[in-house]
Each structure stands twice: as C-alpha cells, then as structure tokens.
Nucleic acid binder design. Structure first.
Length: 935
RNA sequence: GGUCCGGUGGUGAAAUAGGUAUACACGCAGCACUUAAAAUGCUGUCCGCGAGAGCGGGUGUGGGUUCGAGUCCCACCCGGACCACCA
C-alpha cells in the first residue's frame, strides 16, 4: 500500500478528499468484513436498484444514504457490518428503457451498470464491493431457475389458464404494477381539481391505452398455500406498521361461511356462495354467478332458444370486455331460467349471470342481498329484484345498509344483534349441514410467466409425446421422493419436465428483435436453437418454455445470495448450492432492511413466501445431520426465528422535489451528479438527511443545500483552526483538559441525542443536534469564555481561542458526524491523529503502516458514549402557569420539589398579578417541567 | 369506494406515556468587513396592537374531554401513498 499523503490545504475541498478516501477505504477493505471470521455479524441491507433509467436520482440516493448511515453507526457500535449492493437489472423496466432508446438490452445494461456503479461509488457508501451481484448475470439466474425447479418439484409451481392484463397497443402482457388508474395520470398532468373517482380506467403505464383481459396459459407459484403463515409471521417481526397493515390487507383474510343453495340446474345440484354476513341470509333475493363460473357451460347447454343465445352472448361479451367496461358502475347481468332455494327462508330465488361477480374470489358466485350490499342493491334496482330489509338501522329505500343492526324479517333470529346472529346463524347452518365456516383470501397465486424477452428463461421443457401419454416429471422415479399426492395435479402437468439441474443455467439467447410479439408468445420463441430440446425423459423432440419469469422472482432471494458470493470454502462450491450454509447460518436473516413502501406488498411478500418455502424444504437446515453439510462458525440466533427473512424493516419516506413527487413527466427529477460535483457527496448526504424525517420523506430544494455546505465548512474550520492554533509542545496538556459544567453537559446531551436519533432513523434531528452543538462550540471559541475548561494559560487564550474547544470535543464531534459525512470526517480525523514532527512543529503524514493497522479509519472507531447523568442540565426552566396559561418562567435546580417550586412561583410578581389574592384551589406540579396554579 | 399517512411561520421542518408551540436550517431585512461584489460574521424575523415593558391571538375547520390539547375523542375539509366491484 502506498503512503498516504494527507491533504494540507486549509480550504475544504471535497473534490479532492472524497475520491482519495474512497480509494483508501477500498484498498484496505474497511467495509469488507471477513464473513467467516467476524464475531458480531450485522446484515445491513437496502433494496437494490433496477437500473432502468438514465441513472440514479437523488430519491435513490436518499434511500441508500439513509441505510448507509445506519450501517456506519452500527459498525462504530462494534458490529461487523455487511452492506452489499447489486443491480436488479432484469425485467420490464430495463427492457422498456432499451426499447425507448432503440438498443438491445444486453448492450444497454453494460452501460447502465457502469454508470450506476460509478454513481454508487461517488456517494461514498460503505458497500462491500466484493459481494455485488446482478440478477441478469447467468451465475445468478442459474439459481433463480434452480429455485423455480424446486418449487415445481414440490408442487408449488403449476401451469394454468388465467386472465392477464393485456395492452392491445403495446401488444403484450403487462404486470399488475404496469397497470395504472387513468385518474392518476390525469391528476399528474393537471393538478387542478382532479379527483379520483371510482371506476376509473385501468390503462397501460406506457401508452395509456385501456388494458384488456386475455386468457393465457401461465406458470403460477402457489403463494396461497402460505397465506395463513404469511399473515401469522407478521406478528413476529419488527417492521414499519404501515407495511404490515398493507400486507394484512393484501392477504385479505375474510372469515365467513360457505353456503349451499340447492338449484334446479340439474338434479341434486347446488350453488355454493361465500359470505361474511350470514346475518343477512334471509335478505338474499337472488343468486349471481360470474361469467367464468364452472356451471356456465351446463346452464347454456340447458337453456333454450333466444335465452340461450343471449346468455352465451353475455358471457362472451363480459369475458372479452376490457377492464374499463367491466368496471363501469352500472351492474349488467342476465337472468337465467334457473332458480335456487334460500336455505334459511326457503324462498325460491332467480339465478343471474353478472360480471360484477369476480371469478377469482370466493366461489365465483354470490347470494345477492340488495338491502345490505350496495352492489347487490344497484343490481336489484336495475333488474327489478325484490329488496328485503333484514337488518334494521338504515334507509333501504335510498341505498343499501351495510352496517350492523337488529335483525328483522329473519324468522327465529329476529331481534338479535348482527353480531349475535352471525354466530347463531353460522351455528345453525353447520348443524343443518347446509354450509360450513370458511376462510377466503384476497391473495392469489403469483403469476410468474412474462411473455417478454429480458428475464430469466423459465427452466421447463414440454414434451408432446409424453404429454399425450399422460406422462410428466411427476411419473418419474425421482418424483417419488417428493410428496405430490394430488392426482389431478399430476394429470394437468402431463408433458412438463424441469430442465435437468446439471444443464442450468438456461442461458438467455441474444435475440435481435426482442420486441414483444403481440401473439402472447415471448420473443424467445423466434429462436429455434433455443426452443428445440430433447425431452429429458424419453429423449424425443421437445420444446422449451419460452416465457421468462417475473422480475420479482429475481429480487425475492437476492439477499440470500449476497453473503455467499466469492465465499467458496469447505464442501461448499458455488456450483453446488446457491448459498454457503456456514455463511448463511451466520449472517441471515437480514438484521436491518430499508426500502421503499411501494414494495410493501409485492417484493416483501414474495421474499417472505420464498423464504418460507426454503425453510420448509430444509434449505436452512444446516445441522450436521443435514445433507446440506456441516455447520461451522458462530451462529446468530435470529430474533424472529428462521421463519422470516427480514428481522427489521423500515420504509423510508418519499423524497419530493419542489413540493411534488419526482417524475419524468413533471420533469423535476434531480440527479445527484451535479450536486456531488459542486458541493461534494458529504454535503449532499447530509442535506438529503436533513430534508425531513427519514421515514416520512422530505422536499429537496436547491436553496437548502447551501446551508448544509456552510455547516460542513464551519466544522472544517473549527477543527482546522483548533489543530493549527494549538501549540504542539503543550499538546499533551491539552489532551488532558477536562470538560466541566455547561460544556460537558452539551457534549453528553449531543451524544445522547445523536445516538438515539440515528437508532430511530431521525437523521434530521440528529444533524440539528450537531448544529446546535457546533453553534455552542463556536460561541465559546469566539467569546473566549474561560469557564468551560480547566485551568488555562490566560495569555495564551487571547490569541488561540479555538483551543478552548478541547480535543475530546473535536474528536467526539467528528465521530458523531462520521456516518453522515464519512469523507470529511475521515480527513480531519487523520489530521488530528497524524504524528507531530517536533523539529518543524508540524504534523506529518500518517504512513502506510499506521493505516494498515486494522482499525485506522474513523469509521472503525468506537461510537462515543454518554453518561445519562451528565446529559441532563443542572438547571432547568420551570414554567409557572396560572389556570393553564404561562405567566412566568423561572430557572431552578433540577429535581426541585413541589413545595419549593410553589414557594418560588408565589414569589413571582408576574404570577401574583394573576392570582389577585384569590385562593389557590389546586396545584399541578410536573417535576422539572412546570407548576400550574389553579384559582 | 377501502386502508393508511399527513395538514404547524414567507419556506423545508422540530416538539406526541397531554405540560414553554415553531428547535435546526433556508429565505428575507439591517449592520460589519470590502473600492465593489462574492464569501464570511453579527443582529432581527409567527401574527396583531404598542415607543416600550407588555397584552391579545395562533398548529386545516367545528365541537368535546382536561388545570392544561399540535398531541387524546367525535364530525368535517384538504393533500399524499397504496389497494380497489374482495361478497
């Protein structure tokens, strides 16, 4: 390592300092803990970016810096912090960007990768660059494919027909997250008076055409099998409450009953419905089936003449209807000639087909209770169906009453409250065997397939020959080791085989015309060399699956991969298993995860799902008996156990610009590069964190950053002058100076505030605390007050006021600021620590040996400690109120008792003026805060 | 329509087991330094009345609880985020 030459200029020059220390840190691996050896692992993770656009904007930097500050803080607290970084480069975002600029994704990604990593270096985060990963690297997606295969073999990945979002203009399937509400678009364009109305259009994010539905065969992951555990697990983890709520809502557990209405469609047939309101069953005056309901073919078959024709037309019409039409407010539907019988009232009710009934929720059929459900109410009005009130409390002539009330028109349940009757009726239904209690979820299975190019090819092979004979992987010898007992599943999967694991990865071929085809087939289908493959079972001609997997699959496990990268040891080799057992045991689950709230329900839910699958499949079983190998090193005992991947998660707020959200369409995206160039990364980092509370976001304005620049310059000057003006021969003495009084209190108070504020991510107030302390230190330096420090040479004091700031204070200030401004504090720290050349009375550069010593950097120093007693002032301002109004403030000793406080309060003229000789009826005394005299 | 979060000076924002509202910073004004400007430093800066001490008002609106409410409760208005015909 070359000798470090410390910059000796007086001026703060971030352009010179920052690259210098970034290089030095990397050369001596300050941020690269030995994952196998270190004792106190702390996995500090931030959501990795998708390099889709023109580069990182300050919103991204905001998130990364916030995470980095926490990691640096933890490192100084003695943890061995691992803070990896990578790129989520596969997926529609990146592909769309490539389409937009008319270049191939494989070429674009090389440029964006370089640009992203350049920006990520420039911001000065404590990344461990030796563990980076890119999801589009075949060394990575090999294992994404492997994961797909494990799910397939365990019956958790299956193929089925499903309606998906289809954009007729872009001619492609869209992910759910690419379908947006038109009203949103409007309100973005003109802020004036647009309101979000119900039933707004669902449009394509890119071209704004209305999105349609299409029935396509898709691969699914069975997330619904884990619904209950995904819900239960939320209680074990320390996450932002709003994210937990969002997940609970998305999982959407509804408790209700499944109820059978006997029907005359066929002999002994029935229509089953789900309801959460069994108390309203007596008011069910019709049944409505989704057009996709399984009994539709039979109904059409058994209907006659014109009606048959009309039902068929209606079903076709609604199935192909765009979302826009189907979401329209009017409730369309058609009456069949069939009937059901209300199992409680015994009334005969008509069966309708109505497309406001969703096929994918509940049973795809509902009992219509117009009096107590608004949608049913509208439908009944339109179709002249009887409306019977069974819960009193509303006015059902105007609208449905969905609240709770007292039951009427409900036979023997009349007079009961909704709550009681729900229990009683449910009991009744169960005892009569006409229904059961049931749980329905909003969560649906995860559609994995994407008919796009830029993704990980789904590693599955289809063999027509085997399929015709009803054979599949599930009829192979290997499959017997797995417990897939569902016969129907085996039949449905006929012809499908996973790619043999030894053949992974299935490389994404270079396809010149990577544009979405519009035929519902991925562009990969164009490449015969890719498609043509031998059947792994019969050896005959077969074809590959040409869809790629959803990019959310790539990002659902990346954090498991990071620590293992480049860590081949013992029995574990990268090509054997995706994560090193020893390392994984030691480093996972993630200790702190920071990311955007926009991923509350997608990424964070998918990650939890996969993790639970891995757990069930024994991939975290690293015990000696496990086939995965023996365990070594010291393991951490995760607080949340091994069933959750992220022990702690905090959502950062949204950084807005000039009052509104940053977006391309508004043209208010701020890129960090120019700011780093002008002010330096440290200033930008501090300013970003000062904009507002980290978990709530902030407003980025150019004017504000100037103030932060001033703050850092003042720190620089304080330390620099303190260093320069200090006479070296007496340095020893200065070091021994003891703080006392106000100065001591200020220091301990500031350490306390900064420590607590960083822990709770309130970085803005942590910086404010540092500013307040700096103000106090400067005041002392300029004012020359002697009282703050121990005995001093008075003569010396006149010329060297900056010496009034002690070494201890200067060092503490730098340590507290280090997570926020890592480069500048490092430079000043090294200057303070540089040895002195006695002859020249100058500091000399630290040499290579010194900096090679294990803990040379400021970022490796222990975090300052505070004494809780010293962090409290000796004196406090006691507020004196009369009848709850502030009348005086008196300075008293901390810990003053009630009697003493009252005595002092009554001495104050300002107070007695308001008492006017009236008798004090009551005295409220809040220790060390206030005394309130009530007259 | 649902769920959640927020609404505090000219601006970004502090302060919640109920206890000094506006910390910290920006901006602005005045002053110092300068030939001048920049930079820097100092002083002032919630609003109204007042020369001043001081008095009164004030945390989206209207009520309530309390000795005391930015904070808790009820109703409403506005903004944002996420979800959305979920039975």
């Amino acid at each position: 390592m070359k000798s470090k030459i410390l910059c000796d200029n007086h001026d703060y020059n971030p352009g010179q300092i920052e690259p210098y220390w970034q290089k030095a840190w990397q050369e001596s691996a300050v941020y690269e803990p030995d994952l196998l050896v270190v004792k106190q692992p702390f996995y500090n993770l931030m959501m990795f970016p998708y390099p889709s656009a023109e580069g990182l904007h300050v919103g991204n930097m905001y998130a990364f810096c916030g995470s980095d500050i926490y990691g640096r803080f933890k490192r100084m607290q003695g943890y061995d912090v691992f803070e990896p970084i990578g790129l989520d480069g596969f997926g529609i975002h990146s592909e769309n960007f490539a389409l937009k600029i008319g270049q191939h994704p494989k070429n674009v990604i090389r440029r964006t990768e370089a640009n992203f990593y350049r920006q990520l270096h420039a911001i000065g985060n404590a990344f461990d660059w030796s563990h980076r990963l890119e999801t589009y690297d075949s060394n990575y997606y090999k294992w994404t494919q492997w994961i797909f295969i494990q799910l397939f073999k365990n019956g958790l990945a299956y193929r089925a027909k499903a309606s998906v979002n289809w954009c007729p203009s872009c001619k492609t399937v869209l992910a759910d997250e690419q379908v947006i509400n038109k009203s949103k678009v409007k309100s973005q364009k003109s802020k004036v008076g647009t309101r979000v109305l119900p039933g707004d259009r669902q449009v394509c994010e890119r071209c704004q055409s209305p999105v349609e539905k299409r029935e396509l065969s898709q691969w699914f992951f069975k997330t619904t099998a884990y619904a209950q555990r995904l819900l239960d697990g939320l209680n074990k983890i320390d996450w932002s409450e709003k994210v937990k709520i969002a997940q609970r809502n998305w999982l959407g557990r509804s408790d209700g009953v499944l109820l059978k209405f006997s029907s005359d469609i066929e002999r002994d047939s029935f229509i089953e419905v789900f309801t959460t309101r069994p108390d309203t069953i007596y008011g069910a005056t019709f049944l409505a089936l989704a057009p996709e309901h399984p009994s539709l073919p039979l109904i059409i078959d058994k209907s006659k003449g014109l009606l048959r024709q009309r039902i068929r037309e209606y079903v076709d019409y609604s199935k192909n209807k765009s979302f826009e039409e189907r979401r329209i407010k009017s409730k369309t539907g058609i009456k069949t000639n069939f009937h059901g019988v209300n199992p409680l009232s015994g009334e005969k009710v008509s069966i309708y087909i109505a497309d406001y009934v969703l096929p994918s929720y509940g049973t795809g059929a509902i009992m219509g209770v117009p009096a107590h459900d608004q949608r049913d109410f509208e439908f009944a009005k339109e179709h002249g169906i009887e409306i019977i009130e069974v819960v009193s409390g509303g006015d059902i002539s105007k609208e449905a009453f969905s609240g709770e009330g007292i039951l009427v028109n409900s036979d023997k349940f009349n007079g009961l409250s909704s709550n009681t009757s729900i229990q009683r009726i449910t009991q009744h239904i169960k005892s009569k065997h006409i229904g059961t209690t049931s749980v329905t979820w909003h969560l649906r299975d995860w559609i994995i397939s994407r008919q796009r190019y830029w993704g990980s090819p789904i590693p599955i092979i289809y063999c027509q020959k085997c399929g015709d004979r009803g054979k599949s992987w599930f009829s192979t010898k290997e499959a017997k080791k797995f417990k897939i007992l569902n016969l129907k599943f085996k039949i449905e999967m006929a012809g499908w085989y996973p790619v043999p694991e030894k053949d992974l990865p299935v490389e994404l071929p270079y396809i010149k015309n990577f544009k979405p085809t519009g035929t519902g087939v991925s562009p990969l289908a164009q490449d015969p060399n890719f498609v043509k493959v031998k059947c792994p079972e019969c050896g005959g001609e077969a074809r590959r699956e040409t869809d790629v997997s959803d990019t959310f699959l790539d990002s659902a496990w990346y954090f498991l991969r990071y620590p293992s990268i480049g860590m081949e040891n013992g029995k574990w080799k990268m090509e054997n298993f995706p994560w090193n057992p020893e390392i994984t045991w030691k480093w996972l689950p993630v200790d702190m995860y920071i990311g955007g709230a926009e991923h509350s329900v997608l990424h964070l839910l998918y990650s939890r799902f996969l993790w639970k699958v891995f757990y069930d499949l024994g991939y975290f079983d690293f015990s000696a008996k496990s086939p995965k190998g023996q365990l070594g090193g010291s393991a951490k005992m995760p607080v949340s156990g091994w069933e959750e991947p992220f022990t702690k998660f905090r959502a950062h707020g949204l950084l807005i610009s000039k009052g509104v959200k940053m977006s391309k369409s508004r043209g208010n995206i701020v890129t960090p590069d120019a700011y780093i160039e002008k002010y330096g990364a440290d200033t930008l980092r501090c300013y970003l964190m000062f904009c507002g509370r980290f978990t709530q976001g902030g407003d980025f304005r150019d004017s504000g950053i100037e103030g932060m620049s001033r703050f850092l310059k003042r720190i620089w000057r304080l330390v620099q002058k303190n260093l320069k003006l200090r006479s070296f021969p007496s340095e020893k003495k200065i070091e021994n100076l003891k703080l006392r009084g106000e100065a001591e209190y200020m220091m301990h108070k500031t350490i306390k505030r900064v420590t607590e504020d960083i822990e709770s991510l309130d970085y803005n107030t942590a910086i404010a605390a540092l500013m307040e302390w700096l103000n106090a230190l400067e005041e002392r330096a300029v004012g020359g007050s002697e009282s703050a420090v121990g005995s001093r040479n008075k003569k010396n004091l006149q010329t060297t006021n900056y010496e009034l700031v002690t070494r201890e204070e200067v060092e503490t200030l730098l340590l507290l600021l280090a997570p926020f401004a890592p480069h500048m504090t490092e430079e000043l720290w090294q200057r303070l620590r540089a040895p002195i050349n006695a002859d020249k009375n100058q500091r000399i550069s630290a040499d290579a040996n010194q900096q090679k010593s294990a803990l040379w950097s400021i970022h490796q120093q222990p975090w300052p400690k505070f004494d809780p007693k010293l962090a409290e002032s000796k004196k406090i301002v006691l507020v004196v109120e009369v009848n709850g109004r502030v009348r005086d403030k008196i300075e008293v000793d901390r810990g003053i008792d009630r009697e003493e406080a009252e005595k002092l309060a009554l001495k104050s003229n300002k107070v007695t003026k308001y008492l006017q000789n009236k008798r004090v009826k009551r005295v409220i005394f809040v220790p060390d805060k206030l005394i309130n005299l009530v007259v």
